[in-house]
Design a binder for these strands. Structure first.
Lengths: 224, 224
DNA sequence: CGTCTTCTTGAGCCACTTCAAGGTAAGTGG
DNA sequence: CCACTTACCTTGAAGTGGCTCAAGAAGACG
């Protein structure tokens, strides 16, 4: 019987996810899925489009987001290898998704997944736990959006570092604009706050998207 | 076979929910649950506590929220009659819940619900759709938090009016402080913005918590 | 090398917050 | 019925954190 691996979907467990990538949702033989490449900035799906597929990131990274009429954009989350996206319960996607960099994504037909879930209790359970975990993350994101700019960036750095740092070094896949739209700030404020953290020796810039976390404890303290 | 009623859980379908209240989650005979009363401001469950029960509001209203170390509070959502809460996938609740006014809440043991879901595909499906709908609302809430104060209040009023207005009249169950903490604003800003909407004849105050929506179209336009 | 994109920095401004005071409504006891 | 209390809401004035506008620096790439 396939073991559900909660860690594979938790915000703090991504690194492990790539090693022990086993969750019933995509490991079930009936749900092998089709790998598909997406180019940088290519749309994977759009808000309001039929939600025919569920996706799993194999390599690269993906952003999911919603936009307002005047173009303001809120990035809902960043999806790294091992992450699942597109799990809407309605017939249409409630947000859009784009490739941040060239990436490989596994596609499974939604109807297939739901049919399998009708018989395979592991898949059904995994479907629910995955969605519930996304819900938990969404609630944490809401909490983030009432914090100060410094607190938001600290929270972001802690999260992303847990997910893909190697020896406290992080290679950010996303632009400053993406970070700004995720944190509900402007690109200028993100840049300035990065500079402050750097001046306080909490982090160090090896390159504009390559960060060394010098003082994780201080980051955690800033997070509130 | 029990029909899942998506509308019973949608933000826009609460009024209907109270009439046609049928969803597999609590209508299954094995899951009749225990009604329990809660006094105004009483805690229903706290963040980090064991998530032993799942709840359904029968009467009154409930707020669920998260707090930061220094006391800042983000209200995740308001739960009105027919709404379900406490559907966490982990062993502990990821947010707290309190009664806004005296209320009656139905309790079902989490383990019972999960056990039933193992056999009853309708319950399993309902468990997922309910969680996915909460997820959708959480994403909409994130989008709300990047808007201006006027837009936030307009969005709030439209939502609450859809959920519990009778002939464009709404009786707000929650205080200004609750509204402020839901919208990520201060109580003063909420009050001032209410006054603006009133002066613009978009709404009219019959009492401080009793609102007549004069111009829903204008509200929708303000929402962005 | 030039061009394009991305990122940083500065200066001024504004929406919302903070701080402070007063008003309103409901309940309580004399 | 009125004085008093308490909780909640509104309004004003001043302050500020992040935004806007503007310019330039640093990379990426052909």
């Amino acid at each position: 019987m396939t073991q559900i691996n909660l860690a594979s979907m938790s915000a703090l467990g991504q690194a492990k996810a790539r090693q022990t990538s086993h969750d019933a949702l995509f490991d079930c033989p009936e749900l092998h899925g089709v790998p598909m490449p997406f180019r940088r900035n290519a749309e994977i799906y759009g808000e309001g489009e039929p939600a025919d597929y569920v996706y799993k990131v194999l390599s690269g990274s993906v952003r999911s987001y919603k936009v307002l009429g005047d173009g303001r954009r809120q990035i809902i989350g960043f999806h790294l290898p091992g992450d699942i996206l597109g799990l809407d319960c309605e017939a249409e996607h409630s947000c859009s998704a784009e490739a941040i960099a060239d990436c490989q994504v596994l596609l499974v037909r939604r109807t297939t997944l739901l049919n399998v879930a009708e018989h395979d209790i592991d898949v059904a359970r995994s479907l629910w736990t995955s969605t519930a975990l996304h819900l938990k993350r969404a609630h944490e994101h809401s909490l983030l959006l009432i914090k100060s700019a410094q607190e938001r960036l600290a929270a972001f750095l802690l999260d992303i570092a847990h997910r893909l740092s190697v020896k406290n070094e992080v290679d950010l896949p996303m632009s400053r604009q993406d970070i700004a739209d995720y944190l509900g700030l402007t690109i200028e404020t993100v840049s300035r706050t990065f500079t402050q953290l750097s001046e306080a020796s909490v982090i160090e810039f090896l390159a504009s998207r390559r960060i060394l976390v010098r003082n994780p404890a201080m980051l955690a303290e800033m997070n509130g």
